[in-house]
Design a protein around this nucleic acid. Structure first.
Lengths: 335, 335
DNA sequence: CTGAAAGCGCTAACAG
DNA sequence: CTGTTAGCGCTTTCAG
């Protein structure tokens, strides 16, 4: 079953021309008579010619491959982000090399070396690895764009950061303006994004002269579920909950419903990320939207600069966020 | 910033030997003195040598690349499946080329050609594309393993099928044995897997002399949510619901809770797939487990046969399913 | 066990 | 506009 492919040589012979000319014609190089190009293209098609990308990158001694490493595949936000970056990469003529293997601080080097073997010209890191050291370690190997909240610097590294603080601020201001006073927060794990959100929540509560209430968990549904359990089992009941991400919010929403509480009448709730399901009738979750398309476009643009050897300036850009209001938020019940 | 890499030549020169021998040593070819190999390896490491995979596959005129195309990235089941296949592929020495772009019947050819350019030696299709024609179309291009329920045949195609019927049968038998009589079904879309599940449900209800009740939707949460709305707004209330997959079940569960109904006291519910969240406290969903590891291993094994030119026999194997009982199922309330 | 030589399929630099 | 000539970095005979 070993198939053999048509080569440039085959096409060249068939049209009685040189390999070089065929190559030029097929790649859209200007120096080819239009008529010739048509002929060549037709023959290539007829012979079922597909360029051998390995040969090409060997000859060009560079490759269009850009690695794409995804944080948590179990997090729909990361998956959506990955799709956006992938699409942008393809659009810009790159060949994404996606890795589904979870990468942690210690496997980062191994993954980078894998990309080196593929002669990837850059890598885009989605919210992973967690530590700045590990991020820098990757950047030491090849041009790197990191999308996430962890601060890290290296001459071969550019960062697309999320304005976690600005996002939380918008959400909190809205809740406060509506009259909420007992606002609780269910936080994510130790990653920078979660930590930043929690820190901003605390600061805002403090500034408003209110008593903060933080439940810490991870960026998953069960944390939201448990968090609500804890929040409503003792102490004053919150009238609003700020979740560190949408998944937590979903878990929280679920628990509230099974406790017979309704949203937003009894409790308002705000998430973070605006993942696809947030807009669904099922949740109709107010949340802080991350503009994934903008992130992706910026990340690829930065990768391009890095590849060309001109690190982008600034090497860290922050994408603004905005609050999207849906049915999960209302003024507190007058009581 | 154009980095240049150490080549085999560089290492060879450094140890005063030929490229050929260095190549052999590094790849673990037997014909090398152990001491020499050590020396070479050390030098390669010191020079930070990373083999150029493009050059290798060009020289070998074959590549270790295997494409992996994922059905719906928004479906956690598919994502988990993809990770399992990816891991198995790596374990077997292949280089997965994952595609995040959604593939439909018409883009199938384009995607196959992309893989051809990469000289991928095979492709693994996860529940996509939907039609047998499109699946066969891919197989016409390169050795293909399809994991899913759509029946399709081609000499270069092997299938890992799910025993949808067996799975539904187990679930239904269990519900019937517990005494449920009003069992409703919320179905998925037109794909083969969903259709097979629905067909089996209908057959089982018929055999038991019971009145079937089918709500059709898609394999997403909102379908479950809406389905429950419909089921409980008119007609006799079901005591059990068989969902075509776990996501539908989650949506259903959610709606039931907000309607003040409790699971399993008021309604039992069974899903399909056993995605990671099903086991969570949050849902504790009884479901039909697909053994993802077994699927992945079989798929890669089949790919291997196909690549070596010996199509596996049989070319379609079915993975058995089993019912996993959790808290979402109980006997019907005596009324 | 080791080396020399011949490509794999493509692009690039230089002539016409 | 088109052809010729060199490689890109690696594996693979085929000789020693």
């Amino acid at each position: 079953m070993k198939r053999t492919f048509a080569t440039l040589e085959d096409v060249a012979r068939a049209v009685n021309m040189s390999r070089a000319q065929v190559s030029r014609a097929l790649r859209g190089d200007p120096g080819v008579r239009e008529q010739t190009r048509e002929l060549i293209k037709a023959m290539a098609h007829q012979l079922n010619y597909q360029p051998n990308l390995a040969a090409r990158s060997l000859a060009e001694s560079r490759s269009a491959t850009v690695g794409l490493i995804i944080g948590e595949l179990s997090n729909p936000f990361h998956v959506t982000q990955a799709q956006a970056v992938d699409e942008e990469l393809v659009q810009q003529g790159y060949e994404p090399a996606v890795s589904l293997r979870p990468i942690n601080d210690s496997s980062a080097t191994a993954e980078a070396e894998r990309l080196l073997r593929l002669r990837a010209s850059a890598v885009i890191l989605l919210a992973t690895p967690h530590s700045s050291e590990a991020i820098v370690e990757v950047a030491r190997h090849l041009p790197t764009v990191y999308i996430g909240s962890t601060p890290a610097w290296h001459r071969q590294l550019a960062t697309v950061a999320t304005d976690d603080t600005g996002g939380v601020r918008q959400a909190m201001e809205h809740l406060l303006r509506l009259g909420h006073r007992r606002i609780a927060h269910i936080g994510g794990g130790p990653e920078a994004s979660a930590a930043d959100r929690t820190a901003c929540y605390l600061a805002m509560m403090h500034d408003a002269g209110l008593e903060p209430r933080v439940i810490s968990g991870a960026h998953d549904a069960i944390s939201g579920w448990k968090g609500v359990g804890t929040l409503f089992s003792s102490g004053p009941r919150p009238t609003a909950i700020l979740a560190s991400n949408d998944i937590i919010a979903f878990g929280a929403l679920d628990r509230l419903k099974s406790m017979g509480l309704s949203v937003p009448e009894d409790v308002s709730i705000v998430g973070f990320d605006d993942i696809p399901d947030a807009a669904s009738e099922l949740f109709s979750l107010s949340t802080i939207r991350q503009d994934i398309g903008m992130q992706a476009a910026l990340a690829v643009k930065m990768a391009k600069s890095l590849i060309s050897g001109h690190p982008p300036t600034p090497d860290r850009q922050t994408i603004p966020l905005r609050l999207v209001l849906r049915r999960s938020v209302a003024p507190p019940r007058a009581d």
